[in-house]
Nucleic acid binder design. Structure first.
Length: 465
RNA sequence: GGCCCCUUCGUCUAGCCUGGCCCAGGACGUAGCCCUCUCAAGGCUAAAACACGGGUUCAAAUCCCGUAGGGGCUACCA
């Protein structure tokens, strides 16, 4: 039997970090075994599901490069399936109509709580107020005693007491299925062989096992992966900042870096930290998935993302940076100059945004000097060296060797050290004290621009002095 | 409250199943040094963990029991 996995998000928000990791695990598992990966939208909560969320989830999946073989299916398109399945269960006596309204239940629940008792749904209430035409929910008739055993691929056999499980609702009053029911109906109909999902679903599994049994269906293999936590040890959520995958894209993270990072959160392969997509597919199995929760660590993601930026062809990074520059009104063009810049700035960046934010002086018509930098390095003494350099550069070849030779000459004649020459030049060319290597900067800027900027700095010094 | 899951450096983890090779390895971060025209990158070094308590055993991070802590579920949310 070929492997079939699925990712089944509910469209109540965009694709977030936790969901993405679940999607990645399912995708990797399917790809590793040459199986199929299905995308299914679980939009049975009419209150909270939105079209916008569906679009955002798909955008997130696409950006991460998690392609699906079937779907996206939508549960709201399949209501008749659930309805007829529920009808079958009513007929067989495995389920029954319940006329107790949710308001009524809520009141009883509250009452029980106030008395300090545990609330339990009573089967006898079902028929109370029953009347033809009155709305009803459908509940599964669950066993009152006995054990329900569930086998989890990561945790082994987990036992639950049937007495702890109420006759839960499978079909809501509005005709929509509940999560537990829809999941079973769909996973079985879509021939899902392996369900890989969050830990939070583990205690739902016995309920689903009951539904499988009532429907005489086999349960797929189950694997419950632990959750991702925020720095405070609580389940990762919006409280910890923007956790949507799209936000990471906009902040300049590379999809491969995010996928690499998220996969390593809960999965490992010896001491290896960096994996290509192909390696991930080749090496990913459930054997190496851990079972304890993991804290999302931004610093490590930053490091990984920086690594990816540094090790990707400059052309590729440039293509990603270009639209971000346009957005900010920086008039860059694709080509050698941009690639050289990206190669240098990428060396120092953790995100693409870092590159964008530090690229300004390469494209500015007129740079502004950082006050402190100018005060320290654009002085009458350095002014002479700058003027000297300007002349030499104007006269000589503007090549790597030529540039070095000009610097050497000045250092020699004036008894200056490299740093003493380079820093003023750096301020003159970039406006600040931090930049890529000075020769690289000059090469990127080009002879004309370098001479222009040096001239401006010299003029600035004499004006000031 | 009840039930379920989890517990190795601050964080991600290797090792645990198949006890000895582990006075616990790697990575991020942190600190120091090296390299160096600044900042990075890179190299080297350092500090840093088997939650706790009992057992079993010649020997336990590894097996067993208990405790504590954390997380989850307990909805006509998923």
């Amino acid at each position: 039997m070929t492997v079939r996995t699925r990712f089944a998000p509910s469209p109540t928000g965009s694709l977030h970090i936790g969901g993405a990791r679940t999607a990645i695990f399912n995708w990797l598992f399917a790809r590793h075994y040459g199986g199929a990966f299905v995308l299914r939208i679980e939009d049975t909560d009419r209150e909270r599901s939105t079209e916008e969320s569906i679009d955002e989830i798909i955008a997130g999946m696409t950006w991460l490069g998690l392609d699906w073989d079937e779907g996206p299916f939508r549960q709201s398109d399949r209501l008749d399936v659930y309805k007829s399945l529920a009808g079958k269960l009513i007929e067989s006596g495995d389920a029954y109509r319940c006329y107790v309204s949710s308001e009524e239940l809520e009141a009883r629940r509250k009452e029980a709580q106030e008395r300090g008792e545990v609330f339990r749904y009573r089967r006898e209430w079902a028929e109370v107020n029953a009347a033809p035409g009155k709305p009803y929910a459908v509940r599964l008739r669950t066993p009152d005693e006995g054990a329900i055993e569930v086998t989890d691929l990561l945790r082994g056999v987990v036992r639950f007491d049937a007495a702890d499980i109420d006759d839960f609702v499978i079909l809501k009053t509005d005709g929509f299925p509940t999560y537990n029911f829809a999941v079973v109906a769909d996973d079985s109909e879509m021939n899902i062989t392996h369900v890989i999902r969050g830990d939070d679903h583990l205690t739902n599994t016995p309920r689903q096992a009951l539904i499988y049994k009532a429907l005489s269906l086999d349960m797929p293999e189950m694997a419950h992966v632990s959750m991702i936590l925020g720095p405070d040890g609580k389940r990762l959520s919006k409280r910890h900042g923007d956790t949507s995958v799209i936000a990471y894209r906009d902040q300049g993270y590379l999809p491969d870096a995010l996928v690499n990072y998220l996969t390593r959160l809960g999965w490992s392969f010896g001491d290896q930290e960096i994996f290509t997509r192909e390696e991930l597919v080749g090496k990913f199995t459930l054997d190496n998935v851990g079972k304890s929760a993991a804290v999302f660590n931004m610093e490590k993601l930053d490091w990984l993302n920086g690594w990816y930026i540094r090790n990707r062809p400059a052309g590729e990074i440039a293509a990603l940076v270009l639209p971000m520059l346009k957005e900010r009104g920086i008039n860059a063009e694709p080509g050698r100059k941009l690639e050289m810049i990206v190669k240098e700035l990428g060396q120092r960046a953790k995100t693409l945004l870092d590159i964008v934010n530090s690229i300004g002086y390469f494209y500015a018509d007129e740079i502004t000097f950082d006050e402190k930098a100018a005060a320290k390095f654009l002085t009458p003494e350095t002014g002479e060296a700058l003027r000297d350099l300007t002349e030499r550069l104007a006269a000589g070849e503007f090549t790597g060797d030529g540039l070095h030779a000009a610097f050497e000459k000045i250092m020699e004649e004036r008894g200056m050290k490299m740093g003493a020459v380079a820093q003023p030049v750096r301020v003159a060319l970039t406006g600040g004290t931090v930049s890529p290597g000075i020769f690289e900067v000059m090469e990127i800027l080009g002879k004309e621009e370098v001479l222009k900027r040096l001239g401006r700095a010299v003029a600035y010094i004499s004006e000031k002095g």
